[in-house]
């Protein structure tokens, strides 16, 4: 594969191929940061890939008490799915099980989209007719009595279909430790980008997949071309000095958020250099025919 070199790190002349997704988000607040984060992490847990989880979700950013509608510490989470119906179903289900149940929380809209999802309107009935609606500046909130006081939840939140899912970076290094160091640095940089999340565990996925399988009925299987233990076999694209590959997958509210996130990730990984971090960076695609969004690494280099 033709390559560019930056600070000794080889960059594949390749591109990440991404897909349109429906995205929505919530601002979750609580009396303190701990419980806002607890609700956010619980709600966005088991939301790594749409294949098995129904959605991809993660913490976008933490908000200080000054930035939230009710003046308490908060967290903004984003949730993406392949259709607006899936997004709504997942959001309401997760809200009902993970945030309504979490002590001290309140929920507000995080984004204004072309569509609206009924959130408070869906969980208000938990209040068994003791719930009360409050309108403020054109927005409606439900107060649902619960055992620690009241669960305040906005009636509707925004949903947009202009989101992008599947931006990615393949981080390749000599061994697990150095590759992980580089990938963690990349994830850390992406975390600071608003409007983009990395839905996998700690932002990192080790089981990158290819389309198709030798088994009947399996849509995806291990990306054998990037498996270091198969590096001697014909299909491998790995160089002899690569012993580990980790992937960062990025979902964003907009095309720009994903490219900004990839740019930030690339910069941080390259800055670490090949000795302590990654020796090579690539990107995953399906030949460019499946997804309409293409992020060419050479355009995103620092």
């Amino acid at each position: 594969m033709p390559q560019l070199v930056r600070k000794g790190v080889r960059i594949d002349d390749s591109f990440a191929e991404a897909f349109p997704m429906s995205g929505t988000g919530l601002v979750i607040t609580a009396p303190n940061r701990k419980w806002a984060l607890t609700a956010a992490h619980t709600m966005t847990g088991f939301a790594t890939s749409v294949i098995g989880c129904g959605c991809e979700a993660g913490v976008d950013m933490e908000l200080s008490a000054r930035e939230t509608p009710d003046g308490r510490p908060g967290v903004r989470i984003l949730l993406f799915a392949m259709s607006s119906k899936d997004a709504e179903k997942q959001l309401v289900n997760r809200l009902g099980q993970c945030v309504l149940t979490c002590p001290g929380t309140a929920v507000f809209r995080a984004i204004d989209g072309e569509f609206e999802i009924k959130v408070g309107d869906a969980v208000r009935q938990f209040g068994d007719r003791f719930q009360i609606a409050k309108s403020l500046d054109g927005r409606r909130y439900w107060r649902v009595p619960v055992m620690d006081g009241e669960f305040l939840v906005e009636s509707k939140v925004g949903l947009t279909k202009k989101c992008v899912g599947g931006g990615n970076l393949l981080v390749m290094g000599a061994d697990w430790e150095s590759t992980m160091r580089a990938t963690e640095a990349g994830v850390e940089a992406i975390r600071a980008v608003p409007g983009a999340i990395t839905p996998f565990p700690g932002g990192i996925v080790r089981s990158g997949s290819k389309v198709g399988s030798k088994y009947k009925g399996m849509g995806a299987s291990t990306n054998d071309a990037y498996c270091p233990t198969l590096s001697g076999l014909g299909a491998s694209v790995l160089d002899p000095d690569i012993g580990c590959v980790l992937e960062i997958v990025i979902d964003g509210l907009t095309d720009a958020a994903v490219s900004t996130a990839m740019r930030a990730g690339l910069k941080a990984i390259i800055a670490l250099g090949p000795k302590n971090g990654a020796k090579r960076i690539g990107a995953g695609n399906y030949g460019g025919k499946l997804g309409p969004f293409h992020y060419h690494l050479k355009d995103l280099l620092p």
């Binding site: 607040t29 009396p31 509608p69 009710d70 003046g71 308490r72 309140a106 409050k134 403020l136 500046d137 909130y141 107060r143 006081g149 009241e150 305040l152």
Partner: peptide
């Protein structure tokens, strides 16, 4: 007596 999240929301507004 309670702390009301909605009251804090109104307070801000």
């Amino acid at each position: 007596a309670h702390n009301f999240a909605f009251a804090r929301l109104f307070s801000r507004a």
